[in-house]
């Protein structure tokens, strides 16, 4: 039983123009996307900038409105406001942001920042609340004294941990983590990822990890999907995607990651140029005539692995309707 299910989600932004400011077309930021996340799982969403990965995250949390499609939580569609309230959806789904400084109010002390969601959803006495904040700070490895400090007094990694403490404060079931470590240094990144895993084990939280870093996603996620141009190109387990990539876009992405073994660099470059040439030669076969990613099809011999590969010419036609 999955904790959340996204069905045929579309987020289109209208392009307006002309004399009467009429709608001239749409930017299809997210175009017909399906995904489901199991309880206690970390699901990875990989894409380059502008692929629409953050839009999916924001739509799940409710910062963006979907154009069509549904988000099913506990069997009900939470794109409707009434259901959100009934299911206490806004308490159960929280978000960790990429930019830790701009997502913490500079005028508030850490105490108030972390307690804000608690005050919003629960009625606790002052001492209970204090106790809870201290507990949360302890979980993310911050000293108790930091309660009365302001966000600017902390380093990037510490601020990101405060963001995690705030997200966990309401005992959520799902946390959408939008590039939580991409602004952090390597050693700090390791720390934040470790804390995310600890919290996951302790509270059985599901994560939607949105990232452009294939290394981080491979480390954290059992299931993941690769996204470009608002559509999924490949969905599967980490073994499916990293060991048996099917779509040219996935191959290209994997080939572009620098290897930390300097002895392989010649072969890596060769492989990269080969994939790049392949991509340039038959790019058209992988997308339909409107440059839209084809529909996902199951990869033979696997029940977890799907890829948007062209099977025959007729399939290419179908995708382009």
């Amino acid at each position: 039983m999955s904790i959340i299910e996204v069905k045929n989600l579309k987020v289109w932004y209208p392009i307006r123009g002309g004399f009467f400011n009429t709608i001239k077309g749409y930017v299809k930021a997210v175009d017909d996307v399906n995904l489901s996340i199991e309880p206690g799982e970390t699901y990875g969403l990989i894409g380059e900038s502008g692929s629409g990965k953050s839009t999916i995250g924001k739509t799940i949390v409710g910062i963006e409105r979907p154009t069509s499609g549904s988000i099913i939580y506990k069997g009900e569609d939470v794109t409707k406001g009434r259901n959100r309230k009934k299911l206490k959806y806004n308490r159960d789904v929280q978000m960790i942001f990429q930019d830790s400084l701009s997502s913490l109010n500079p005028r508030k002390r850490i105490n108030d920042i972390i307690a804000e969601p608690i005050r919003n959803f629960e009625k606790l006495s002052k001492t209970e609340e204090n106790h809870r904040v201290k507990e949360l700070l302890d979980i993310v490895g911050m000293p108790k004294g930091s309660m009365y400090k302001y966000p600017f007094e902390f380093s990037g990694g510490q601020r990101q941990r405060i963001g995690i403490a705030r997200a966990v404060s309401t005992h959520p079931k799902l946390i959408v983590a939008d590039e939580p470590v991409s602004a952090l240094d390597l050693s700090v990144q390791a720390q934040v990822l470790n804390y995310m895993q600890d919290i996951q084990k302790e509270f059985n939280i599901s994560f939607l990890l949105i990232s452009h870093d294939l290394g981080v996603v491979r480390h954290m996620c059992k299931n993941l999907s690769i996204m470009t141009r608002g559509r999924f190109v490949e969905v599967g387990t980490r073994e499916d995607i990293y060991d048996r990539p099917q779509h040219i876009y996935t191959k290209r992405l994997l080939a572009a990651i620098p290897d930390i073994n300097p002895r392989n660099r010649q072969e890596d470059t060769k492989e990269r140029l080969r994939v790049e040439a392949e991509y340039e030669n038959d790019e058209k076969a992988w997308y339909d005539k409107n440059h839209r990613v084809l529909d996902l099809k199951p990869v033979s011999g696997s029940n977890t692995h799907y890829a948007a590969v062209p099977e025959s010419n007729s399939m290419v036609e179908q995708g382009g309707k």
Binding site: S155, S187, A190, Q191, H219, M220, R238, Y242
Partner: peptide
């Protein structure tokens, strides 16, 4: 050595990453 050790590697899912103590 610590820095190289804290790179997420292909290993098992959920392995703990190496962390350099302090700041």
């Amino acid at each position: 050595r610590s820095l190289l050790n804290s790179i997420p590697q292909a290993g098992e899912l959920g392995d703990r990453l190496h962390v350099i103590q302090g700041n």
